[in-house]
């Protein structure tokens, strides 16, 4: 992560002049704006950032960020992003995608990325439906709910992506809400700053296809007190951090409180930073133990040829292993 604290970067630097084709009122707008503000606020220059997107409405996010933008394949956003980050560790890498992209077709990558703890940030836009294909149930829609384009109530259960992130090994887990931009900016910045793999779930209405979990619903208009359903755990004194070198008891306690928050849903929905595990090495650190010079001498940057275009590899020792001499 290359953060130049001294540089003044404005949000405008991350804006593009191309028209945006999301539906009016889409939760994606709040997330897009938060990403732009967060990166600018971190003082990172656009060319130092690569935003990888999956497929779907949210997968188009890279188009609307003025940075290296990579619109990948359905479900494959994480391995694309991981390859870029490992090859050029100086890049700030963001991966974004929807709930179908991440929890259905890409779920295998999600789990295995957790095992690696590569220093990048994954933002999952969760609106519980496949919007771009006209509103089918996604893996995060609860069992039995029937959003408006479903012919029958949802016959499949809901995956709890926060829990899946924890058991997979993500070392920073948070949740935001697309219309709470102020908090979302802070969450994205913390996720990017975290040295390791961050998972940020962003709850968002799909005004076109999700008629159940709407802006009004999240805003708690139906609740007796009329207060939003979402609340910020940090405002209630929740401490998500497992410090480096924590003992087993501390780890267990932190995971237990995380599990409780991850299962809270319905009347009150926790947002904020839910887990920070500083007790697990990053993949880059593990690589550096094997490969002297990594990450300074990275796959993208190390010399491979001289000025004449001749290979500079000296493989004599490997040949000697095989030589008959």
């Amino acid at each position: 992560m290359a953060i130049l604290e001294a540089v003044q970067v404005t949000r405008k630097a991350y804006q593009v002049e191309f028209p945006n084709d999301w539906c009016p009122g889409c939760g994606d707008f709040g997330i897009l704006s938060s990403i732009q503000q967060a990166l600018a606020g971190l003082g990172i220059l656009p060319h130092q950032v690569a935003v990888f997107g999956g497929i779907g409405c949210s997968g188009k996010t890279p188009y609307y960020v003025h940075a290296y933008g990579v619109h990948t394949l359905h479900g494959r956003v994480l391995p694309f992003a991981a390859g870029a980050k490992l090859a050029n560790p100086e890049l700030t890498v963001l991966a974004v995608g929807g709930d179908g992209d991440g929890m259905a077709i890409g779920a295998g990558h999600f789990v295995n990325m957790g095992r690696r703890n590569i220093d990048l940030t994954y933002i999952l836009f969760n609106n519980e439906v496949y919007g771009l294909t006209k509103g089918q149930a996604s893996p995060t829609l609860p069992l039995g709910l029937q959003t408006k384009s479903l012919p029958e109530p949802n016959i499949q259960g809901r995956v709890n992506s926060l829990m899946l992130a924890m058991t997979s090994g993500f070392t920073w887990i948070g949740r935001g809400y697309s219309y709470n931009v102020k908090q979302l900016v802070r969450l994205i910045q913390e996720a990017v700053r975290h040295p390791g793999l961050s998972y940020l779930e962003v709850l968002q209405p799909c005004p076109t296809y999700n008629n159940l979990h709407t802006k009004e619903w999240y805003g708690g208009k139906d609740r007796p007190n009329g207060q939003p359903r979402w609340y910020d755990v940090q405002e209630e004194g929740y401490d998500p951090v497992i410090p480096e070198g924590a003992d087993e008891e501390t780890v267990q306690a932190k995971l237990a409180q995380f599990v409780e928050k991850a299962h809270e849903w319905g009347d009150r929905i926790p947002t904020g930073v839910l887990l920070v595990n500083r007790n697990i090495s990053t993949f880059e650190e593990r690589l550096a133990e094997r490969i002297p010079g990594y990450p300074a001498s990275s796959p993208a940057k190390r010399p491979i040829a001289d000025g004449e275009g001749q290979s500079v590899a000296v493989l004599d020792a490997f040949f000697a292993e095989l030589a008959v001499e």
Partner: peptide
């Protein structure tokens, strides 16, 4: 000189990770 070798979760990941690295 060095090579980073990553064992991935499947071949979908193997090729897309390689492509991501190639972009750098």
């Amino acid at each position: 000189g060095s090579v980073v070798v990553v064992q991935t979760e499947d071949e979908l990941s193997a090729i897309t990770m390689a492509a991501g690295a190639a972009l750098t």
